[in-house]
Design a protein around this nucleic acid. Structure first.
Lengths: 195, 195
DNA sequence: CTTTTATCTGAACAGGTGTTCAGTTAACCT
DNA sequence: AGGTTAACTGAACACCTGTTCAGATAAAAG
């Protein structure tokens, strides 16, 4: 056998990414073999190398895709309004965005150590750009006398850690809607940085 | 060759745990081989099986050791005082304890998925006991009219996520002492749950 | 309908995996 | 000093690892 019926790069490519994301999130990058990914796609292991030069790059592509999507969606929002409005917008956006892609979040936060130093820097730079957006909001709020934080960088990291934490416990079938979760967290964020 | 000069169970046992903890934290459970652990200890792979029945149990023991230490140290503290004092005590304890053992924290939070379902339940039960301590404090504070949180369980998870986040950025050689970090976070926690 | 091209198979490569165990040696006990 | 035991080696087991590639086949192009 060789080329299979209905095979097509435009469908197999995304399927490889989807399968890898799902399996990396469940079992971890190192614990997943190329043969497992291939089986999930319904293909032999060798075929994967039409879509990625190696396993490392597959991981990098998944992470970069996640960070690019994060920054792209963020760029279309929350540019107007005062610090308080922008902080609420950031809070709700962060929660919603992360709850919509739990697998990508899991992989992006857990598999950083499996990136080569060079690839790690690439991803870290994107993450810093995102953090800088929140820090800018906090700084503006402090300057306007609305917020009081001892250290804007630490406050940024603290808020992001708190918000990202929702992904560890939230289940769609649970008792709270995403909107309710957003509201509860926004209440805590607002108070935590309030003057 | 066989038994090596100076070999002793009481020294090798802890060394196996230390080496495994260090390597699991750096590279991840699945990415570390028994031979790498053995090499770190200065021993052949087979010798490790005098100290653990298998790799899985080695991971479980590391995690359980971490959680036991957490609960044991916690049990000797913060039983007296009002909700505000107990919350401050919890906040400072959590940060200090976690910053003192970054490897154990890393492993305990990242490798949960590598535990068998049964072992996972064991660790989760210990984690819930710890979370319940914080939730108790928050509930007491709400009852006393000192705190205002929409949902005590979510507030608990949010606070713990925020506090544990310090381990991702704190470096001993950095510009802040542990005590300064504690104070900055305590300020945010206090305000976040304040009435 | 024929030719070209994209896609995938199946086997192979060199090396690594967790785990077991007979045999060897150092440390301890009397 | 001699016997016993705890600690470790080194080899072996069956199997899995990422990656490569010649060959086969379906889809696309002419």
């Amino acid at each position: 056998m060789a080329r299979t019926a209905g095979s097509h790069s435009q469908t197999t490519g995304p399927r490889v990414h989807d399968a890898a994301l799902k399996l990396f999130a469940r079992h971890g990058f190192a614990a997943v073999s190329m043969r497992q990914i291939a089986a999930e796609v319904g293909v032999q292991a060798g075929a994967l190398y039409n879509y990625t030069p190696d396993k490392q790059t597959l991981l990098l592509d998944l992470m970069r895709g996640h960070m690019d999507a994060l920054l792209a969606e963020r760029a279309q929002r929350g540019k107007h309004g005062g610090p308080l409005e922008r902080l609420e917008e950031f809070t709700r956006f962060h929660i919603r965005f992360h709850l919509e892609r739990p697998d990508a979040v899991f992989v992006s936060y857990m598999e950083l150590r499996n990136l080569s130093p060079e690839n790690f820097e690439t991803i870290e730079a994107l993450r810093r750009r995102y953090e800088d957006e929140l820090e800018g909001i906090l700084r503006d709020g402090v300057a306007a006398g609305l917020f009081a934080v001892a250290d804007s960088k630490i406050a940024t990291l603290a808020v992001i850690a708190m918000l990202t934490g929702v992904t560890t416990w939230y289940r769609p079938a649970g008792r709270l809607s995403v909107n309710e979760v957003e509201t509860i967290y926004w209440d805590m964020v607002r108070k935590a940085v309030a003057a």
